[in-house]
Amino acid sequence: MHRITKIAATAIAAAALVTTAAAAQAATVTPSGAGFIGKGEVQSAFGLNNGKIQSIIDGNMNAFTFRSVQPTSQSLTQDVSQQGTQAGSQAGTEVATQTATQYGTMTVSQDLTCTFTNGNGTKVFHRDGVREGDRQGERTGSRDGVRAGSRTGERDGSRSGSQAGSQSGSLAAGIDAKARKTGQWTGWNATGWLTAPTYSTTGAPVWQEPTYAEDAWSFGDYAFGDYAFDGDYAFDGEVAYDAWTVDDFEPLADVAWGEWDALPGENPDDCLRSQNADKITQLSNVITPGDLASVAVVSTVVDAELTDVHVVDGDVVDGAITPGAVTPIDPVHAGTVTAVGAAQVFVTYNGVEKGL
């Protein structure tokens, strides 16, 4: 889990202080604590005339003590991670099979002949019938659609910033003993810090916007919703059937026969009746099952329900990326502490401190 890290003052204090040019003034001290503090500056701060400050110095060369405060800035860098969401869309084709049943009939004929020995001669009979049958066929259809999705990811980057602060400490300052003809002191020479200066931060770090590599995003897989399809299926032509076969039709026993062709007074049953078996010398009973080429289509029923419905996914089109929260990652890398602007010198006399 990433955490935002506060920069410890002690960590920053360890960095080396880089000096910059200071503005020229009567009390001028470098970041190393060296410089010159003019007597006139001290006089103005405490409202002392020349004779009064001279007498104070003559009485106690250490009556005035000094400290310096140097504004600083420290460069910072920190790694970050940013969440993001990317929209996407995917085209798809839904394919389905539609089945149909086609009903047909095939003509069947029956020829019956018998010759009687009792003088009744030869009897000839004929009738036609119909065998019903059906066959299955199918066709394929499709329709286009699209679905929306999204995926989450993250990218790594970095941010730069700065931490304002200051270092302060007491100065080792001695009287400038180069006397003029009047014998008066001209000021104090600061030769450095009496002890190591103390570093402290001022306020919170100031961060710039993070920067990322152009191809820094790393995403997982898309999560898609349902496809939205356009309208009805477009089918690829007519239903395709296999050729008719005899097995597509009902058995001969189930043929629907028409009336016999017979002369008045003649009955086909006379040829088939068992009581007449000893009176018939020749009997022919031939059923012709019909010709497949002569099958007549009666009707076609198309099934409303589609089968083998499936979607063929197309290409995914990446959409816009919506950047999310940025999480700083420990640690913060502290850079060089740099002096910014001029150091301010403070003078203390009789327990009262004044800024110069």
Rank of each mutant, 00 (worst) to 15 (best):
F116P: 09
V317Q: 12
D308M: 09
T348S: 03
D313Y: 02
T288V: 07
T322R: 10
E259Y: 00
N350E: 15
A240F: 06
T186L: 10
L112H: 04
E214P: 07
S162E: 09
V255I: 03
K6H: 12
G145K: 12
G237V: 08
S142N: 14
K279Y: 14
Q344L: 13
G174D: 14
V317K: 14
Q54C: 00
V18G: 15
T191P: 06
I175D: 05
W244H: 06
G153D: 05
T107I: 12
Y349T: 01
T20R: 08
D134I: 08
G169W: 08
A256W: 03
T77P: 08
G119H: 05
T327K: 13
A27M: 09
F64N: 04
A256G: 12
A9H: 06
E305A: 11
G33E: 00
T19H: 03
G137D: 02
L306Q: 09
S166G: 02
A100Y: 10
T336A: 07
P328V: 05
T322H: 10
T117C: 04
G137A: 02
Y199T: 11
V301C: 04
T5W: 04
T201W: 15
F229D: 12
G225Q: 06
A87I: 14
G119K: 06
A296Q: 09
Q78Y: 01
A296F: 02
V239A: 05
K279L: 13
G88Y: 01
P264F: 13
D230I: 14
G169K: 11
S162W: 00
I12Q: 10
A179I: 12
N118H: 01
P210A: 08
F116R: 06
T198I: 07
H2E: 08
R155A: 03
D144R: 12
T105D: 07
V255H: 01
Q102V: 07
T245N: 02
G225L: 03
Q86H: 07
I175K: 10
T327V: 08
A253H: 03
Q184L: 15
A253E: 11
V316Y: 04
W217G: 01
M1H: 13
G165A: 07
A293P: 01
S32V: 11
D278H: 09
T93S: 02
E353T: 05
D270N: 13
W244R: 06
F46K: 08
S284C: 08
V297D: 05
Q275G: 11
T101K: 14
V295W: 04
V80I: 01
